[in-house]
Amino acid sequence: MRVIEVRSAEARDEAALWELIRAFPTPTPISADAYARMFQRKLDDPCALIAVARQGETLVGYVSGHKHSAFYAAGDTAWVDEIFVVNHGRRMGVGRSLMTAFESWADDVGCKLASLATIGAADFYRALGYATKAGYFKKYLGDGKQSTEPSRQAK
């Protein structure tokens, strides 16, 4: 088994990360153009982190999140937007390593806590020391769908 390296994403990771993003299970797939814009925006944002897990020359996972201020925490909190590990990388410590990297970043940027929303991987997060306190709800805004097609304006 090769060693897993986890580090902050860099511009050179854009294409390989795109392959993982496309595999992420979501009801709102992202277009390549939107991904490229968001990837660069996240790289440039000091309040955002994308960390990647690499095994040899292959990306096997990533975590993406950000920090924001929250009154309930009396300071900054870190929120995991998404975490993904390829099937063959699961149960090998990749997810744990990604979460460790995220928590380390969050601590370094002064966050008081790290949080995320999940139900499917609850046991994994409990094993990492996370506890559930409140339910998580979401509502898609606008038409509730993200188009993967370029927008077309009426002529």
Rank of each mutant, 00 (worst) to 15 (best):
M92G: 11
G75Q: 09
A134C: 08
F71W: 15
D123W: 05
A121R: 01
R90V: 12
P25S: 14
D123I: 04
E103Y: 00
R91E: 12
Q40C: 07
Y72T: 07
H88T: 13
A73D: 03
F84N: 06
W105S: 04
A34H: 15
L49F: 04
V80L: 06
V94F: 03
A101V: 04
S115Q: 06
Y35M: 08
A117Y: 07
F124A: 08
R54D: 10
E82G: 13
A134P: 02
A127V: 09
S64T: 10
A101E: 02
A74Q: 09
A114K: 00
L128S: 08
G56K: 04
T77F: 04
S31Y: 07
A127T: 09
A114M: 01
A73P: 02
M99Q: 01
P29G: 12
G75E: 07
W79Y: 14
G110C: 00
H88D: 14
H88A: 14
A78E: 00
T132S: 09
D81A: 12
M38G: 15
H66S: 10
R90M: 13
V85G: 08
P29Y: 12
A117G: 14
L113M: 08
I30G: 02
C47Y: 09
Y62T: 12
A114T: 11
A127L: 07
H88R: 09
S69Q: 11
N87I: 04
P46A: 06
T132Y: 00
G65Y: 03
K112C: 06
R41C: 12
M38W: 13
P27R: 11
F102L: 14
H66C: 10
L116R: 04
Y72G: 06
T26F: 02
T100R: 06
K67Q: 06
A134I: 02
F102P: 03
I83G: 08
V109I: 13
L116Q: 03
C111K: 05
Q40T: 10
Q55W: 01
S64G: 01
N87Y: 12
Y125N: 13
A74K: 07
V80Q: 03
L43H: 08
S31R: 03
G61W: 10
I119L: 06
G120V: 05
W105N: 12
Y62W: 13
K42N: 11
Y72F: 15
D81G: 06
T77K: 01
